[in-house]
């Protein structure tokens, strides 16, 4: 998926380069004429565009009135961009449009598809208008093409950027979810690690834990690794650094649920397991933690 998005960007960037070589002096007058034409035919052109969008089965996640409303805004921003040569408004609009439609599952190819369709609809209307005057038609197309390409580029790139931003945000959220720092009771944090540990996640975990210690004023942390099958040397080393850094903040770490494989990795990288506080399972770790915190642990049998 990532690859596809990148290709999209490349395609449009190439179009932008073409624009630079094709610009000419008569462009301003022709663009003015063009803008006037687009203003005059705002309604039929918009309708035609929406018809083509539906026909091509693009934006299927949206209702027809919605498509028409968005199409109108894009159309108007498009005309403004042609007229003023500034793309800021269009860019902003592309961003906000993307923000609205990305959560509804609209894909990159659909957005690119609709801008290309608009380009096509407008080009056809120019053909129709200048049918009789071939030279004028050529000139106006020369003026129109690069601007249209640049507009398509702006919208598509805006969309792709927005999409990447959202994806990044989601990944961030997922990562945070997968390493929750749980304040179970006063001064005690539990950090259950589940799933694959890679260096990036290990880094994030450390950062979260160390800040968690400060914000929760934790004195004891139980890191439960029951949900981790294996760790390579780098990640295991990171775990050790995290334990040491936690101590510098004044918190004692108890590591629980170390699998024999992970224990072996730790020994291999030279960790003295006797120097680490460990417990067989989470329950044992919490009991150890409560003793450290000065709580009395009453065995269930005695308590009842």
């Amino acid at each position: 998926m990532v690859r596809k998005r990148n290709e999209d960007v490349v395609v449009f960037t190439q179009n932008t380069t073409i624009e630079a070589t094709e610009s000419n002096q008569t462009a301003p007058r022709l663009l003015r004429e063009l803008v006037a034409h687009l203003r005059q035919n705002r309604t039929p052109l918009r309708e035609e565009w929406v018809r083509r969008i539906t026909e091509a089965q693009l934006l299927t996640a949206m209702s027809k009135p919605e498509i028409f409303a968005e199409a109108t805004s894009v159309y108007d921003s498009y005309v403004v961009a042609l007229e003023t040569g500034t793309f800021e408004a269009l860019q902003n609009y592309a961003r906000s449009l993307s923000e609205r439609i990305i959560p509804r599952g609209v894909e990159t190819h659909e957005v690119i598809g609709i801008v290309l369709l608009l380009r096509d609809v407008l080009a056809r209307s120019l053909f129709a208008k200048y049918q009789g005057n071939f030279e004028e038609l050529n000139r106006i197309l020369d003026a129109y093409e690069p601007a249209a390409n640049r507009i398509a580029n702006t919208v598509a790139v805006g969309f792709v950027q927005e999409r990447e931003r959202i994806i990044r945000q989601q990944q961030e959220a997922i990562r945070e979810l997968s390493t929750p720092v749980l304040p179970v009771r006063e001064r005690l944090l539990i950090l259950p690690i589940i799933g694959v540990m890679d260096p990036q996640r290990a880094r994030q975990l450390t950062e979260q834990l160390l800040h968690g210690i400060r914000t929760n004023r934790a004195k004891v942390v139980v890191i439960d690794t029951t949900g981790v099958a294996a760790m390579d040397g780098t990640v295991a080393n990171h775990l050790v650094l995290t334990v040491q850094a936690s101590r510098l903040l004044g918190a004692t770490v108890i590591v629980t649920g170390l699998s024999p494989e992970i224990a072996q990795t730790l020994v291999t990288i030279g960790v003295d397991l006797n120097k680490m506080n460990t417990a067989g399972d989470l329950q044992g770790g919490i009991e150890q933690a409560e003793r450290l915190l000065g709580y009395k642990v009453i065995p269930i049998a005695e308590a009842s």
Binding site: E207, L210, H211, I213, R214, L241, A245, L248, L249
Partner: peptide, 8 residues
């Protein structure tokens, strides 16, 4: 926290 991590 950052200082602690750099130290270790």
């Amino acid at each position: 926290p950052e200082v602690a991590f750099a130290m270790v």
